[in-house]
Computed example of a mutant assay.
Amino acid sequence: MAVVGIHGHGASHVRNVTRLPGAELVAVADPQGGGDLPAGVQVYAALDELLAGTEVDVVVICTPIQTHVPLAELAMRAGADVLLEKPPTASLDEFQQLTAVVGETGRALQVGFQAQASEATLTLAKLIADGEFGELRGISATGKWVRTARYFQRARWSGRRRLDGIDVVDGAVTNPLAHATAAALLLDGSTGVDDIRSIETELYRANPIESDDTSSVRITTSRGTPILIAVTLCATEHLEASVIVHGSKGRAVLTYQSDLIGTTKYGRADLLENLLAHRADPAVPLYVPLEATGGFTRVVEAVRTAPDPTVIPPDLIRWEGDGLDRRPILHDVEKWIDRASDELALFSEIRAPWVTPATRG
């Protein structure tokens, strides 16, 4: 096995590979060089050099969003199966390109939406399908997170919509809180490209970045379910994200980071172990094959093609910290996120204070 991108979150992939019985980490690729690696692991600056110098069966890719497609294609055309971090692509065109490569090569590609392998998510999806909550009024996802200047300065692509003329589509909806949207789509059984009827986006930012840090998005699925996403990286305190099911017979709250439905704890499968099991026996299905991220990619495409985020008025923001610890706190953002979630409404529809008359339509 090989890991591409071993610093930051990539370090967790290195640890995961080395713990697996029967798997050997033979090489890594990263332009920053190697880190704390087991003895004998070869270090390369780039994936093409790695593939030319080492034979590998599986490649784990944890690199900037805009590099996902070329690196995954390179690995699969070299005969390797791939675990690709989310979001898999920065556009719908890239998604279709990568889908074609999977078909041409016959290689397995698993996308790193860990919540899709959670028994909590899968159990709740079955309860919804079985009618346990009655008629489904909708699904909402909320994220009240904190990110400091350090987060946006960790890499050139962070907080960017485009970089050097290439789509990146970083932002609260598409990257840090992407799992919330993906989990909501899975609960509705609407994970495919053709499972989405429409998407409405409202993107805002308090930070001096290109991408959104506070947004509401409403997806209407082909089955007619409204899925309302309301998220921020400018909360007072960092809380776990939630996905809420609204039914005529009740509601349920999925805390996907902790694998909880309400207060009931569930287990979670490991996506890399699942990929290896699928390699050994193709009858074992992947938890997150590329086609199961088509609905999410439609959301990425909607964010990509939306107008640039609206700047939030400075009088609504309180700044805390200095230097790389500096961060904005958006006044009462938690209250407005909860209201958007309860009403399945966009920020403009509930007249959130940072919505200007121009963006209300």
Rank of each mutant, 00 (worst) to 15 (best):
R326K: 12
R223P: 00
V299L: 15
G5D: 01
S222A: 15
H179C: 01
T305L: 15
G321S: 03
A46L: 13
I317D: 08
I139P: 01
A352G: 07
E202Q: 11
A46E: 14
S222I: 15
T263V: 13
D167I: 04
A184M: 09
A183M: 09
A129S: 11
A252E: 12
V17E: 10
L290M: 06
A280W: 05
P31C: 15
G159P: 07
N207A: 13
E24N: 08
I209K: 03
S242A: 10
H9E: 15
R298F: 01
V299F: 01
V56I: 15
P87E: 12
G321N: 01
I6L: 01
D164T: 12
T121C: 04
S118G: 01
R360W: 08
F133T: 11
L37V: 01
C62H: 09
G35F: 03
A280G: 06
R107I: 11
S341G: 10
Y266D: 05
T221R: 09
I329R: 06
R197V: 12
R326F: 00
K265V: 14
D212N: 15
T89Y: 00
V333D: 03
K86R: 10
V288T: 12
W354P: 02
T293I: 07
L50M: 06
G247W: 07
G10E: 01
G295E: 03
R156P: 15
L20H: 08
E49V: 07
D81W: 07
A178G: 13
E73L: 13
R326A: 00
R77S: 09
P226V: 08
G8A: 15
G224F: 11
P38W: 04
L272R: 08
E320V: 05
G106D: 01
R137M: 12
L239Y: 14
V168M: 06
T181A: 07
I128C: 11
E55A: 14
A129L: 09
R268D: 09
E237R: 15
L286H: 13
L233A: 03
S348H: 04
R304Y: 00
L92P: 09
R162H: 15
P357F: 12
P38G: 02
L50E: 04
P313S: 02
T191D: 05
P353L: 14
